[in-house]
Amino acid sequence: MINKKHTISVLVENHAGVLSRISGLFARRGFNIHSLAVGITENPTISRITIVAEGDDYTLEQIAKQLNKLVDVIKLRSVKNEELLSRELLLIKINCTPAQRPELIAIAEISEAKISDVSQTTMTLELSANQMRISAFEELLKPYGIKEAARTGVIALQKGANSLTG
């Protein structure tokens, strides 16, 4: 079977210990996590965890079923790639002399990134986009020298009027 990336939206009880239950389950059952992002939802007692995991269809089915068994998991949905509205936030600090600034500002503009901070030797950019664009953006900046970078992991909603609510 072919391995694919899958995005799973999970609504969970917003209390201590839930995240460790979920990450423990992934580790224990040998499921690979690409990224995991947690945040509160419109309902303060519920958090949404967005997990990007890799595996074949069997693995995905097992992930969903095992997650569903956790009492703290209220609902989950595996979102098909074509229905996926996904974003990731990147903060990236690049080597940048004052002379290089115009060049980098131009790259930022084309890429729809924002300039968040500037120093004598660096520039920090911020980009919210889907994973493909984030990766392309990073590639573009590599030649300047990346000092450090942080990515939030993907968060996602389903396109259209359908919604996952508690």
């Binding site: 201590a16 210990g17 460790s20 239950r21 423990g24 224990r28 956790l70 009492v71």
Partner: peptide, 14 residues
């Protein structure tokens, strides 16, 4: 103990 027993419980409460 809730952490240590997590893989083996249906559910746990602290």
């Amino acid at each position: 103990i809730t952490g240590a027993a997590e893989p083996f419980v249906k559910h746990s409460y602290l």
